[in-house]
Structures are given as structure tokens and as C-alpha cells.
Design a protein around this nucleic acid. Structure first.
Lengths: 162, 162
DNA sequence: GATTGTAATGAGAACCATTCCCATATAAGG
DNA sequence: CCTTATATGGGAATGGTTCTCATTACAATC
């Protein structure tokens, strides 16, 4: 069975476990996120899918999150971004452009993962938290925005949001 | 000079560099953030300071961010959270409670930092980004929320937000 | 120490991403 | 088929954040 099929199977399974259906809209969302290979905002999802109503996008993304198929990623701009859960897409990290907000996937090195796991263990001990996951995001400027910055002096983005 | 004094000095210096004043409201914000020792949301800031108008809080936090005194932290709930910039408060990471949204500071181990720096270098090479910083957040459940969860079966938080 | 220009303040309106509501449509089971 | 439960989508409501503007405080000059 191909990777793509297994993703849909997993999604159907997880939705079914919550008494919910794997409808065409939900299949479209899963396909879109799987093909993007990076976290997408709702506007990006709407653009990629063509004619999906905004309310359906939000509602079904929420449903998929509750079923553990999709995960919300916190980026650097106003928009929440969404990607397939790690159980479906594999563990990875993110690289966000501080200027345009675009987020890309990054595959972690074993060495980095070991260091992070150790950090989680230490913190769990010291502060009494039950650590369930981690998020490691690199922040920088993407090639396109560096180009733009070099060409014109641009006004800085809004500060609190940005 | 004490550490607290140096923070205010730095803040005044940076604001001055942008032709802005270190006013009482701004000093209050800096003091509040410095004493908290963890990122605060606007509601938390308002509560801590007593009678600060919301609009002044938002406007001056923005001003302080533009001056490089304060930094926005992306947490796990609806509210943006704010802390002193790393140049004033030192480099550190965060531990967020997935249930109540509270965020605590965590000091990183040298080993973890080295691994992260290496990861940044690799990514910069591979994807052409200019990496300017990183964010490493642990996600878990704080002692208080674990206690609450053990006592009563609670409804899960909203999915897309949260 | 009055004056005058500039920046800061605070109350409320505006904005916009996200959520909610509800009438309609669609699927599943008897 | 009929029935019943769930999904859909258009639009209204929500709420965190930003903007506006009249007022106030500050700083420098006369």
C-alpha cells in the first residue's frame, strides 16, 4: 500500500473511532496537507483547494485535529497553520520566514533529537511537568524576502503581531 | 549597578535610539516583565499592573518590541505573550502547559544549544535561509492541570485554537 | 516661566481571524 | 422509501488586537 493510501486509511480510522465520517471535504483537506509538505494557513488551504467555503475549512480542520489527524502549528504571523499529525507525516521541525510568515518542514538530525529528549527529561524532573512533546522552530529570512530586502528599503512589519 | 538597573538603562537607551521616551507606563511594563520571569499575556500584564488601560498596554508593548526591548512569544492559546528581549534577560527556552496555556522559562544546557546551532547551520546551507534565531518550546501539562485532570473528566479545549 | 511643537495617553471604535448558528443537503439503516 | 443523524455552507457573532483622535505631559526655546 502506498504512503498516500495509508494516510487516508489512518484518517478514516481515526475519524471512525470518534463516530465521524471521512467525507469528501475532509479527504480534500488531508490530501492538500499531505501534498503541501509544509504547514498551511487557512487562506493557503482555500487557495490550494479552489472553492472550499471558509467555514467548512475551519470546521473540518477542527474535526481533524480532534481526531488526531491534523496538528496546529504556531507560526510567526496572524494565521494559524496546519499540518498532518506526526503519526501520519513523521516527526520534523520548522523553518519560518520572519518577513512573509511562510513555514517549511525541516528533518531533524538524530543528534539534535537526542539533545532535545534529554532536555525534556531534565525539565520534567525539575518542574514537575509531564512533557508530551516539543517544538523546535528556526526563524530566519527566506531567499525571496532577502532578495526583496536587498532591493528596496522596506518598512518593518507590525510589531506585536508580525 | 544591579541587574534591574541595567535592564532599565538598556530599555531607556534603546528607546532613545529611536527617538522615543522611557515613560512611566513603559517603565512599568519593563518592571512587570522583568519580575515575572516568564512570558506574560496582555491580560496577565493588566492584572499585574493594576490599572493600566488595555490600549496603553498594547501600544507600549508594540513600541518596546520595535525598540528591541521586548519580544513576542508564541504560546499554545489565544493570547500572545511577551517577555524581555534575550539581550536583556538572557537566552532561554519555554515550557508551555497545553491545558491552561501558562508558559515558564527554561534554561538550556550547553549541549542542547550546540546541537541547535548546528541544526541552524545545516538548514541555512540546505535551504538558503538566513537563520536569525530559534525557538525551542517544550509542551506538556503543568502540575496543577494534571491534578485537575486526575480529579474530574474534563471536556477537551477548543481544537483549532488552544 | 510662558510658549510651542512633539510625543504619549486613554477611551472607544474598527479590524479581522476564527467560531458559532441554522437552514439545507447528504449519507446510513431499517 | 422513510427516518434519523451527521455534514455542509452562508452569514452573523465573538474576541484579541490595532487604530483613531481628542486630550495631556514633556522638552526645548524665547
Amino acid at each position: 500500500m502506498s504512503a498516500a493510501e495509508s494516510v487516508h486509511e489512518q484518517a478514516a480510522l481515526r475519524l471512525g473511532g470518534q463516530g465521524q465520517r471521512y467525507t469528501p471535504v475532509r479527504r480534500t483537506l488531508v490530501t492538500t496537507l499531505a501534498e503541501a509538505g509544509r504547514p498551511l494557513s487557512i487562506p493557503e488551504i482555500l487557495e490550494a483547494t479552489g472553492s472550499l467555503p471558509q467555514s467548512s475549512a475551519y470546521r473540518n480542520v477542527t474535526t481533524l485535529i480532534e481526531a488526531g489527524v491534523v496538528r496546529r502549528v504556531t507560526g510567526v504571523d496572524d494565521h494559524g497553520r496546519f499540518e498532518l499529525a506526526e503519526e501520519l507525516a513523521g516527526h520534523h521541525h520548522h523553518l519560518a520566514c520572519a518577513v512573509c510568515g511562510k513555514v517549511e518542514d525541516v528533518v531533524p538530525s538524530p543528534r539534535l533529537e537526542r539533545a532535545m529528549d534529554e532536555a525534556a527529561r531534565v525539565v520534567a524532573e525539575e518542574q514537575g511537568y509531564q512533557v508530551t512533546g516539543h517544538q523546535f522552530d528556526l526563524v530566519g529570512t527566506c531567499p525571496a524576502c532577502r532578495e526583496a530586502a536587498a532591493t528596496s528599503t522596506m518598512p518593518s512589519a507590525r510589531a506585536v503581531r508580525s
